[in-house]
Write a protein that binds this DNA or RNA. Structure first.
Lengths: 260, 260
DNA sequence: CGCGGGTTTGACGCTGATCAAAAACGGTGG
DNA sequence: CCACCGTTTTTGATCAGCGTCAAACCCGCG
């Protein structure tokens, strides 16, 4: 069952498993798991024994303050793992499904053991963690130093490029994003009302179109300018983040079309 | 020379090198390097072939926007490494010495090779990257969702605890911090003027004292309350971050008991 | 003694928050 | 197909937190 699951894993080479020989893939003893949108994979402060690899759908990591203020830390896409910790203490943040998601649960302790024994695996893990950190840094300068309009534009571009890396967008520049404006607000440190105004402004400028969870980028170059020049970094990136470049997977991965 | 340097390395077990047997430490072919405050270890957009392990002093990572806005991403202390990337592309941020620093330069490619061959090393690297990411997440919620006063208090507490983990503070709660208020501002996403007002407020409330780069925390518990409850996470942490727990260094560093 | 960087304080303005309410949408059951 | 409902989006009016501008002050240093 596991072996079979792994053999057909849609994100096999993108994820931590990488090119582990099939018989060695004992990372995932539990069967694939499906969760509905809105469910928590794990909650803030929970012990968190499972690491989840996302096979399909979107997940966000978030942190809550006592009075209910929420910060979204990261949007995780298929191929990403969430919930990894080197130790077994409780997680300082929670993880919530933004759409229906399909997950491959991995025992944390098992993954840690395997990583301590297998340099390739540990290094892939390090690369994924590096990517997460680099993304967090980008978001930090966005939230810390950019205006509301710039922040919203930056987030759209970030999602745009991250999605594009996985799925070559076919017609035009359309993003299927399962986010409400409140999600966007919590990710960029604004209120939903103000995010709405900024989106309206972008729409009015003819830079984007949206409705129904579908965003269409009409003028990527203008979005670029608006987002601030450091966003050029994103465009400079290769089609896949570096963690994907490390193993031999030359070209095998084609994620199917997103269809939430 | 190298071997000797390593044998007396002040952060030997804290850093990536960990318990690599002494003869294997070929990570650091270059001699220890000293830089003056204000110098860049490497600049934003630079290729960055060196990874630096900090032996002494403070370094900050920062990102500049075109118009000069700056975001400080991370304060690196002795034992931390800065400049690691899995690939050889240019760094999206720069690193600057905040005080005179003493560095151990490590060849990036060599480190990567070594990590790909040595699971223990790779895993230690992963843990350090995890710690950095976790810290970035904390800063994200601070900047994204907290008020000015809370942000400043949060940063002070963070530095306080991080320093304390390394050096058990002896008398009272004094922090020797080589930061200007502008640095603090760039780290928490405010202006220097407003940071000043917040520090003044904390001083006036009798929570802290400062002057001349020395901060004294008079009422840690009140700083806690002000910083927002999620800061409790910090107190809950053990004396050392998890990456320090992984190798056999059982007990060298003891932070004193918390006394709020 | 004068210079330059850092700190401190005040006055004022703007970006983005807050409050409120209407409109649009999607799903559900009749 | 339509009425109903909760959620999300949209828009307006007002407010306040923080930024901006400016000047004074402080201190170490040449």
């Amino acid at each position: 069952m596991n072996i079979d699951t792994c053999r057909f894993c849609p994100v096999r080479l993108q994820g931590v498993c990488g090119d582990l020989p099939t018989p060695e893939i004992t990372l995932a003893p539990a069967p694939v798991q499906v969760m509905a949108a809105g469910q928590d994979l794990f909650s803030q402060g929970e012990p968190c024994r499972q690491v989840f690899m996302i096979l399909d759908g979107w997940v966000c990591l978030y942190e809550l303050l006592e009075d209910g203020r929420r910060q979204i830390l990261h949007f995780a896409l298929p191929g990403d793992i969430v919930g990894f910790r080197p130790d077994s203490r409780s997680s300082p943040f929670g993880a919530q499904a933004l759409s229906q998601v399909c997950l491959c649960p991995i025992s944390r302790s098992r993954l840690v053991e395997a990583a301590q024994a297998n340099a390739g695996l540990a290094f892939r893990l390090a690369c994924m963690l590096y990517d997460d950190g680099a993304e967090a840094y980008e978001r930090l300068t966005s939230i810390g130093r950019k205006t509301a309009l710039e922040r919203v534009a930056t987030l759209l571009l970030e999602l745009f490029y991250r999605l594009r890396r996985r799925v070559p967008l076919s017609r035009g520049e359309t993003l299927q994003i399962p986010l409400t404006q409140t999600h966007i607000a919590d990710a960029v440190g604004l209120t939903a009302v103000h995010v709405n105004r900024m989106l309206g402004l972008l729409r009015q400028k003819g830079v984007i179109e949206y409705g129904n969870g579908v965003f269409r980028i009409l003028a990527p170059s203008r979005l670029f300018e608006i987002a601030g020049a450091d966003a050029q970094v994103m465009a400079g990136r290769p089609a896949e983040p570096m963690s994907r470049h490390l193993h031999s997977s030359s070209s095998c991965i084609q994620a199917g079309p997103l269809s939430h």
